[in-house]
Simulated scan of single mutants.
Amino acid sequence: MAINTDQLLDSARRLRAEVGDNIHDRLTASIYAEAEQIASRAVTQSGQRSRFDFDRTLDRILTSKTWGFPAMFVLLMGVFWLTIAGANIPSQMLSTLLLDWGYAWLHQLAATLNAPAWLSGLLIDGVYMATAWVIAVMLPPMAIFFPLFTLLEDFGYLPRVAFNLDRLFHRAGAHGKQALTMVMGYGCNAAGVVATRIIESPRERLIAIITNNFSICNGRWPTLILMGTIFIGAAAPPFLASFVAAGSVVAVALLGVVVTLLVSAFLSRTWLKGETSTFSLELPPYRPPRVWQT
């Protein structure tokens, strides 16, 4: 295709007028400003009082050998408690709407239409009741848990979890990047398995693939929350029910981490022996969670 030189030159002149004559100066100034900002955060001069750095201050707590794991436990406990406590009211409302009113109304409609008993039993007692139970019981926890988990990811906390677990995976004879794939597995096991391609060693990649199943994917979270609420939380006093239920779910999640480490250590010392690779992780800066995009 032939290029019209006149049109190309006209476009260049128009763009030149839009960006202004000092475009090179502005580009250079922006580069130096960015470099100065990076240097001011990374370099401390003698006799100068160090500036407050939000990322470093928070990392001293969240990635600390002393406070890193307790902070992780508290955050997970808070997420599950908000999920369980916050899902009670919408679950009750949906149960009343779908199971009490909707079920009775559909039976009245079937009786008015003289529907056969086998048809009303199949559609109302079978299909409708099963769907209504799933919506009333599992939809509210999912609608609360997944946005909270996404907010933690947007904030930049999940890479800190992988950083805290790196030392444990190294002792288990696995690659440190397995911590990243395991954390991704808590959102989706399929994504966690696909993410194991970032592990260069075939041996360590296979360990990560095998053990990713012990991460609780998003399809199992609502079931665990439901079971923790019904069987564990119901056995506690009413004012502690939500905390006990949340604690039981956190215990299951931590059990998955422990089993992952144990199986990884077993595989790396038996059938999948080999030298452990080194791992370097760049922690991203903390960012405000994108609430409205979640």
Rank of each mutant, 00 (worst) to 15 (best):
M1D: 04
I3D: 13
N4W: 08
D6G: 11
L8C: 04
L8T: 01
L8G: 01
R13N: 12
R14H: 10
R14V: 10
R14S: 15
L15A: 01
L15I: 06
R16N: 15
E18H: 07
V19G: 01
I31N: 12
E34T: 13
I38A: 13
I38V: 15
R41S: 13
V43F: 15
Q45K: 12
G47H: 10
G47D: 05
Q48Y: 14
L58Y: 03
I61G: 00
L62C: 11
K65C: 08
T66I: 14
W67A: 02
W67H: 05
V79A: 06
W81M: 15
N88T: 10
Q92R: 08
L94P: 13
L94C: 11
L94S: 13
S95R: 02
T96I: 03
L97A: 06
L97M: 10
L98M: 03
L99A: 09
W105K: 08
T112L: 14
L113P: 07
A115D: 05
G121T: 09
L123D: 06
V127R: 09
Y128A: 09
M129H: 06
I135D: 10
V137P: 02
V137Y: 03
V137L: 04
M142T: 14
F145V: 07
L148C: 04
T150V: 12
L151G: 06
E153P: 06
D154G: 13
Y157Q: 09
L158I: 14
R160A: 10
V161M: 14
A162G: 12
F163R: 13
L165S: 11
L165V: 11
R167N: 07
F169I: 00
F169H: 10
H170S: 01
A174T: 02
H175C: 14
G176H: 08
A179N: 07
G185H: 01
G187T: 01
N189S: 07
A190S: 00
A190F: 02
V193F: 07
V194M: 14
A195C: 06
A195T: 11
I198K: 05
I198Y: 11
R203S: 11
I207P: 08
A208W: 03
T211C: 01
T211F: 00
N212G: 09
N213S: 09
S215Y: 00
N218Q: 07
G219Y: 01
R220V: 13
L224D: 06
G228I: 05
T229K: 00
G233C: 02
G233Q: 02
A235T: 10
A235R: 12
A236M: 09
P237G: 05
F239T: 08
S242D: 03
S242T: 02
F243K: 09
A246V: 14
G247C: 12
A251C: 04
L255W: 01
V257T: 07
V257Y: 03
V258R: 04
L261Y: 00
L262Q: 01
L262R: 00
V263Y: 00
V263D: 02
A265M: 05
R269E: 03
R269L: 01
K273E: 04
E275H: 07
T278Q: 10
F279D: 12
S280R: 15
E282Q: 03
E282I: 02
P284V: 06
R287M: 08
P288Q: 11
R290H: 13
V291T: 04
Q293W: 06
Q293S: 12
